[in-house]
Amino acid sequence: MARCLFCVEEMKVVLTWRSLLLKKEAMTICERCEGKLKKLAGETCSICSRELDKNYRIEDLCLDCVRWEKDKKWSGYLSINISLFHYNEFLKDMIAKYKYRGDYALAEAFVPFLKDKLKDMNFDLVTFIPLSNERLMERGFNQAQALTDLLGLNTVELLTRLHTEKQSKKSREERISLPQVFQVTKPDLLKQKSILIVDDIYTTGSTLRHAAKALKTAGATEVSSITLAR
């Protein structure tokens, strides 16, 4: 009997004609856990995927993205970010177990959802947000890289980190005003290419915009991103 990767309860595998014929990606978490993952739905920001609130939008952009796009330093670098789920308590617990407790196996739980979204996205190369060496040695793996590895896409390590402090401890202002955070390691690979960046969480969008800026400055034609949580 298969067990849910997250709650470890036994899962009933229901074989239907539909599941056989359509060869749907096999689920690794149970229906109850899947039910607690809330997909981003309805009208969403055309850049960052945030669900649009009538008090927090101008046309099809959320106010955060309006602010980013007004700023000449940041405008136009990140074409689009797709996020799968709301960063709710359940997903917080799941991502905490995945990256802080170090339960690599949970990457498998996210892969079917990522694959589903990636069907509609166009890109030449895939890369991921790097960890500082210190963090990598602590965790034993990069949570974004683990996703790309299991997705089985053409992935290249294009970026390295110039700073080591933890992002999560900084305010939005601090993150935005930072000088360059990433360095491009293989500029010759990305010339005239469109790049997809994979990461776990989109919070303020500053990490992804820093990475996008570095990639575009080094010659990429377009940069988009996909994250688990928004």
Binding site: G102, D103, Y104, A105, M137, R139, G140, F141, A146, D149
Partner: peptide, 17 residues
């Protein structure tokens, strides 16, 4: 999983993670 600490495939226990 491919462990960056020991640089090889490394097996861990999920029961007490």
């Amino acid at each position: 999983f491919p462990c960056k600490i020991c640089n090889q495939d490394c097996t861990y226990c999920r029961a007490c993670i």
